[in-house]
C-alpha cells in the first residue's frame, strides 16, 4: 500500500512477530489518514522527558511492547501527567511493573473527550475483510454495540453503519458537547476498508478508543495483528 506500511510490516516479520506494537500500529493508521494521538517513542527517562516537552503537558505514558496487552489493568499506563515531576514518578512505577521494557516507552499527547468509539477490521473466512464500528473504550465488550460491513465500503455504507449503532445518539450534540464530525468519521471507516482490501497481510485491526475530541475523532490506541 504505502511504503511506510510495508516498512512496518517487514520489520515485524523480520522479528518473527504477528503483533505490531502500539507505536507501529498507530504509525500505520496515521499513514492511511486516520488522526492518531501524537506519540514519541523513548527508551529512558531523559528521552521520555524530552518527548513530553516536545508534545506538551499533560501527557500519557505507556509501556510500548507488542508482548504486553491489557496495559491499563496491569498498571502500565499513566494518563494526564501534568508536569515533569509526576512524569518521573510514573516512569519509575511503570518501569518496575513492566515485564518487558525492550519496546521502550510511548509518550503520548493527552487526548480529551468523553465519547469513546471503536473502529476495526477483521478478515472473515467467508466474507473477507469486514469493517467494524461501534461504541468504544470500556463499553466495547460490555455493550457489544458494534456493526460490521464487508469491504469495500461506499460512503453510503459507512454512513449507514454510523447511523445504526444503538448508542448512535452520543454522536449528536449532547450535554454541551458538539456533534461529531460525521464526514471525518466516514473517512476513518473508508480508510480501514481500504487497508483491509489492499493489505492482505493484516488479519485484524483495532483502533480503540477512537476518542471524540471536540467534534473530531482521534485514535488513542491501536492494535494491528498480522496473518
Amino acid at each position: 500500500m504505502t511504503k511506510k506500511i510495508d516498512e512496518i510490516i517487514n520489520n515485524a516479520r523480520r522479528q518473527n512477530r504477528k503483533i505490531l506494537s502500539e507505536y507501529e500500529s498507530a504509525g500505520l493508521m496515521t499513514s492511511v489518514g486516520i488522526s492518531m494521538a501524537k506519540g514519541i517513542l523513548a527508551q529512558n527517562l531523559t528521552d521520555v522527558q524530552k518527548a513530553a516537552k516536545e508534545i506538551g503537558y499533560p501527557v500519557v505514558l505507556k509501556v510500548c511492547s507488542p508482548e504486553v496487552s491489557h496495559k491499563t489493568e496491569k498498571g502500565l499506563v499513566a494518563v494526564n501527567l501534568p508536569n515533569e515531576a509526576d512524569l518521573e514518578v510514573a516512569f519509575q512505577k511503570i518501569s518496575e511493573a513492566s515485564p518487558d521494557k525492550t519496546g521502550g516507552f510511548l509518550v503520548q499527547e493527552m487526548v480529551k473527550g468523553e465519547r469513546e468509539l471503536v473502529l476495526g477490521m477483521i478478515r472473515d473466512p467467508q466474507f473477507g475483510p469486514c469493517v467494524m464500528f461501534g461504541l468504544g473504550g470500556i463499553f466495547t465488550e460490555i455493550m457489544g454495540d458494534v456493526t460490521f460491513r464487508p469491504a469495500p465500503l461506499s460512503e453510503t455504507d459507512a454512513r449507514e453503519m454510523i447511523g445504526e449503532i444503538k448508542g448512535g445518539k452520543i454522536l449528536d450534540a449532547v450535554r454541551g458537547m458538539p456533534a461529531v464530525d460525521i464526514d471525518s468519521l466516514i473517512q476513518c471507516l473508508l480508510a480501514v476498508s481500504r487497508i483491509g482490501l489492499e493489505c492482505e497481510e493484516i488479519q485484524a485491526i483495532d483502533v480503540n478508543p477512537l476518542v471524540v475530541q471536540g467534534s473530531r475523532p482521534v485514535g488513542v490506541d491501536a492494535l494491528v495483528l498480522l496473518r
Binding site: 503483533i19 496487552s69 471503536v118 476495526g120 477490521m121 477483521i122 472473515d124 473466512p125 467467508q126 466474507f127 469486514c130 467494524m132 461501534g134 466495547t140 465488550e141 457489544g144 458494534v146 456493526t147 460490521f148 460491513r149 464487508p150 453503519m161 488479519q203 485484524a204 485491526i205 483495532d206 480503540n208 492494535l223 495483528l225
Partner: peptide
C-alpha cells in the same frame, strides 16, 4: 477467531452476516 483483538472477539458470524 483471532483472540486478542476486540474486533475479532466481537465478529460473530451473525453480526457479520447482518452487515453483509
Amino acid at each position: 477467531r483471532a483472540a486478542g483483538a476486540h474486533t475479532a472477539a466481537l465478529a460473530s458470524d451473525d453480526r457479520i452476516i447482518e452487515g453483509a
